[in-house]
Simulated assay, not measured.
Amino acid sequence: MHEKRVARAYHTELWVGIGVYAVLLVGSIKLARPMADGTLRTVLLLLPMLGFALAIRAIVRHVARIDEYQRLRMLESIGIAFAVTGALTFSYGFLETAGFPKVSMFAVWIVMCTSWVAVNLVRAWRSR
């Protein structure tokens, strides 16, 4: 029962953060793109990070709520995913020097999340 309550609270908080991020992202792009460079445009373009901060807060609160075993498993999964992300991004950095197209820093977050999901799927499969 406790685990379900913790999971529900986490998912609610996380999706609120993601929702705020999405709304602010769309709004900031619509408002800031046509603006001239300047402080106001920069602030508007960074505004979606408020939603991102809410998502980070949800994750931190979730880690504080879960038990030690779950926390250890999560830390191990994140550590493996970050190592995979480091290997892939460094490898592509070398490929960029060989003439491959430059990739946006946004791609690192996508690789990191994908790696984390993949690690968790493999670990779940192995523990069956």
Rank of each mutant, 00 (worst) to 15 (best):
K102T: 11
V122N: 06
G79L: 07
V103Q: 09
A124K: 07
R5K: 13
V117S: 13
S127K: 12
V119E: 06
A32Y: 02
L75G: 15
V26E: 11
V84F: 12
F100M: 14
Y92P: 07
L75C: 04
R61I: 05
Y69Q: 11
A98H: 11
A55M: 04
I80S: 06
L54K: 04
G19P: 04
M1R: 06
L46A: 07
G19E: 01
V84N: 00
I66H: 07
F106C: 00
V103D: 00
V20R: 08
A9W: 02
P48S: 10
V20H: 08
V103T: 05
L44H: 02
I66C: 03
A87R: 01
W15T: 07
R61T: 08
A53Y: 03
R8P: 02
I29Q: 13
P101I: 12
H11W: 15
S77K: 03
K4F: 05
I66M: 09
M49P: 05
L47Q: 07
W125T: 04
Q70L: 14
T39F: 03
G99R: 04
L121H: 01
L24G: 11
A7W: 01
I78D: 02
L95G: 02
L40V: 01
L75A: 15
G27E: 08
Q70A: 03
R33S: 13
L47N: 03
L50I: 15
M49C: 14
G19R: 05
T42E: 05
H11S: 02
V117W: 11
S104F: 12
A107W: 12
L25P: 00
V60Q: 07
M74P: 00
C113R: 11
S115D: 07
G19K: 05
S127T: 13
R5M: 11
E3M: 06
V103G: 00
Y10H: 11
G19A: 06
G27Q: 10
M35H: 02
I110R: 10
L47E: 12
S77D: 09
A87M: 15
V84Y: 08
R41G: 00
T42P: 02
R71K: 10
A58K: 07
V23N: 08
V23D: 10
V23F: 10
L45V: 01
L14Y: 14
I66F: 08
I56S: 09
T12R: 12
A22C: 12
A98C: 09
Q70S: 03
V119L: 05
L88V: 14
K30M: 14
L121W: 02
W15C: 04
K102S: 13
G19L: 06
R8M: 12
G93L: 04
L46E: 04
L95Q: 08
L45A: 03
Y10N: 10
S104R: 06
E68F: 03
M35R: 01
E76T: 09
A107C: 00
S28N: 12
G93A: 13
A32R: 00
F94M: 15
V111A: 10
S91C: 02
A22L: 14
G38V: 01
